[in-house]
Simulated assay, not measured.
Amino acid sequence: MLCNSCNQENANESAFCSSCGHNLSDTQGQTPPPLTAVNISKDAQSPQNTLSYDSETADTLLAAFVGERYDSFYRAKWFKDSEPRIEVNKDGSSIHSFNIAGLLLGASWLCYRKMYLEAFCIVVGINAVDLVLMYMLGMETYNSIGQTSFFIGWAVLTGMLGNYFYFSHSVRNIKTVMRGTADPATLEQALAEKGGTSWVGAMVGSILVVLLSMAISYLFAPDWFWLV
């Protein structure tokens, strides 16, 4: 508990300030503790806490997880008309934004931002739709418009919804780190390691995405697909 008179930190059960003797019962429940890694960690470990933090704490956690691009890009994209939060799409603001890197790089961008599960699910989903189009449209029609629709699908999912995917990914992983990190001193480092970016992930992920797409087509595409 923080003393309003001298700013001395005291135990929560203290009735009087250990430094100046001020009556702490007058200010109990009125003065929030300072925003520190210690307080954040204590909140996360509390059994009654639901990891619903105020906007300042949300800012701190998201900045640690995302890295340097948070202040210059993602904060404005996610919270243009609202306060920062650790809650997925509470008012829809984070879904109404565009990510040019997601549009141009697709799965490579997802893997660069360590969204490996999202990249896998999107690859499987888009290839499944692509297979349906092959069988429904036939060879001639598919060759004229089917492949175009395949790339449009990537653009919609990773360009139009990329920021939403990344926000959901950030919130999910921040909550995981907060539940599992007992040492406040390593909190920021744990968030940075879990989040941030990975060029290795981008390169390896891109190769695996291509191989996965080829494998799906090889196993399930009609015979004419390989004769074109």
Rank of each mutant, 00 (worst) to 15 (best):
G102H: 04
L104H: 10
L105C: 13
L105G: 11
L105T: 08
L105R: 05
G106H: 06
S108M: 15
W109R: 09
L110S: 12
R113H: 09
K114S: 13
M115P: 08
Y116F: 15
E118I: 10
A119P: 02
F120R: 04
C121W: 13
C121A: 15
I122W: 00
I122D: 00
V123C: 02
V123Q: 01
G125P: 00
G125E: 00
D130Q: 04
D130N: 04
D130S: 04
L131K: 05
L131R: 08
V132K: 04
L133S: 06
M134G: 02
Y135R: 12
M136T: 14
M136K: 08
G138P: 05
G138W: 04
G138Q: 02
M139D: 13
Y142C: 02
Y142W: 04
N143L: 14
G146N: 04
Q147R: 11
S149V: 15
F150E: 07
F150W: 11
F150Q: 12
F151H: 11
I152Y: 10
I152F: 14
V156W: 11
V156H: 09
L157D: 01
L157P: 05
T158P: 12
G159F: 10
G159W: 13
L161W: 10
N163A: 03
Y166F: 15
S168R: 12
H169D: 00
S170E: 04
V171H: 00
V171A: 02
N173D: 11
N173T: 13
N173E: 15
V177E: 06
R179M: 14
R179C: 14
R179K: 15
G180L: 10
T181Y: 07
A182H: 14
D183E: 13
A185L: 11
L187S: 07
E188L: 11
E188I: 14
Q189L: 13
L191N: 07
E193H: 11
K194A: 14
G196D: 05
G196S: 06
S198A: 06
W199R: 08
V200S: 08
G201A: 04
A202D: 01
M203P: 04
M203R: 11
V204C: 09
V204P: 06
G205L: 02
S206G: 12
I207R: 07
I207T: 12
V209S: 15
V209T: 15
V210E: 10
V210P: 00
V210R: 07
L211S: 08
S213R: 13
M214H: 12
A215Y: 10
S217K: 12
Y218Q: 10
L219N: 03
L219W: 04
F220N: 01
P222L: 01
W224M: 03
W224C: 05
